[in-house]
Write a protein that binds this DNA or RNA. Sequence first.
RNA 1: GGUCUCUUAGCUCAGCUGGAUAGAGCAACGGUUUUCUAAACCGUAGGUCGAAGGUUCGAGUCCUUCAGGGACUACCA
Length: 614
Amino acid sequence: MLLPQFPHFKVINLIFEPINKRMIQDLIKAKIASALHALYQIETSGEKVVIEATTADFEGEFTFVTFPYLKLSRKSPEQTANDIGNYLLTNLPELENFEVVKGFLNLSIKQSFWLNFIQEHANTPNFGFATPNSKEPILVEYSSPNTNKPLHLGHVRNNLLGFSVSEILKANGHLVYTCNLVNDRGIHICKSMYAWMKFGNGETPESTKIKGDHLVGKYYVIFDQVYKKEIEELRSNGMSEEDAAKKAPSIVAAQEMLVKWEANDEEVVGIWKMMNVWVYAGFEITYQKMGVNFNQFYYESNTYLLGKEIVKEGLDKKVFFTKDNGSVWIDLTEEGLDQKLVLRGDGTSVYITQDLGTAEMKYEQFHCNRSIYVVGNEQEYHFKVLQQIALKLDKPYAAGIYHLSYGMVELPHGKMKSREGTVVDADELIAEMENTAEETTKALGKMEGESEENLKTLYHTIGMGALKYFLLKVDPKKKMMFNPEDSIDFQGNTGPFIQYTYARIRSILRNAGEVPNIFNLEAISLSKVEKELLLKLYQYPLIIQEASRDLSPGVICNYVYELAKNYSLFYHDHTILKEQNLDQKNLRLNICKMTAGIIKSAFSLLGIHVPEKM
RNA sequence: GGUCUCUUAGCUCAGCUGGAUAGAGCAACGGUUUUCUAAACCGUAGGUCGAAGGUUCGAGUCCUUCAGGGACUACCA
């Protein structure tokens, strides 16, 4: 079977306004470095100087901590801070004034700096994004579903993470390819197939009106029930648990099916194909609802035999060794791992063999030296082994293998298990989120008169916004708790709150009409709240870089939440449309505009849409 | 047994490469709407950052030990 062809990419070369100006932070750091040199003959560079955001209770935007330099300055913390502050005052035109508290030097930037910034960037498209495709290409593999059951909440986390991380990397200038390695073969599928053949009575998605992946999943659960019953019976006849687990008729039958499948048995392959088609049709719907997509699909039924060439290569290079029964191993004890099998005694592949083959294939296709695998943390060991083998084989992509290991989604009662039916189903959850969005919207009654179609879109936007934000705001590395009893919030630190902030801004901008970008800087005085909001807007490019570096959508979530909160405060404290001072009014409208733009932009990095009204 | 990882308010989570008095949201209680969308805003209450040592001007953050969770450690994928 041929692999699906790699589609042609539309590489759109939009002209983005580059952020070629240095950030004010870098400027301050450089000046502090020269201050340290001029005042105390300390040799350092701007990159080594650390400044941080000023804590809310103090005046200023940026803070320099003098303590690390006291031994060299040989002066008191206050004196040192004052010296540097005075130096900056004459050498840094952007500095308005400074304040010294103990050893902390707090710097206040001139309001003209912030006004120039908003004037310059309120209309910059894709503000904060790096030039597209200006950085090395990266391949992101995610989703990787099994075809024997529908997707559950854990998969949703995987998909949203994979999608969002890809978008973040793109925003940071990388060329990103996404792929999905579908696990469409193996004993688990045979289990569903066996149960369907035995108990299915020819049921199909059409005849039952059940979504294909759910129908196949139903038989996976039935298999497990039958299997467990069989084990119990065998045990009551005196068989050990271990033997019973191996000799139960249903598992034996499933294994036989797998053998037949590998032997290309017509009947088994026919059923396999049919059931896979059901599942794919179901997945397609769920993927669409989640808004994820891939440049390339791989199927294990195509790739599971790959990797044997690499085993040969490894044997030639003496990276692998053979045991008496012919099985091939690698010794990773020096790396703190174990001896790992790479090829069975009978010459068949194991998981790692296949993954090595797939890695090679992906490299040939995409030529990415960096490759990110979005896979649960239970496979950390596997990916350590994979990378070690690739390193020992001197593969060009070896160093760039990165396992984005995310934590499980846990329920109050423990882990989700598909075969036991203790899962939060993806489709059900999405439907529930949409329902909640509908109920809330109707209760508030602001959307009366909207068309049925618009409303449906809105419920989906809000429901998915809540779900996505909920899953993405937690650090990917950490496991997270989901309690189905208390539903996902729509208030506070949530997707809908931020969407709401956006909708409010849009409402103002609709009423405002044309927003002139010119205002007389002299006629304006910035409030503390406005300054904080401008500072937040200013930080967005850095946030994208940080999120990209850490591969963490959570960074974006935290940022955009703070931005929305800052805006809400601003909105609450300031009149905008009725402001008499026209320059002030224009400034505020520009702040609104830019805030809306960044909310929309940041949310797009999370795969969340924003409504014009809600 | 070994390796990795986690433990912050009643609950769910932030806390950037060590910096000022540890922050949000939810839940609880109280307040704000004749004015641009109240899915909002403000306030009150809630903490020995799992425990103990150590490193230093300074530790939720780094190191060590311990306790308690979780994952992995298959000729399964």
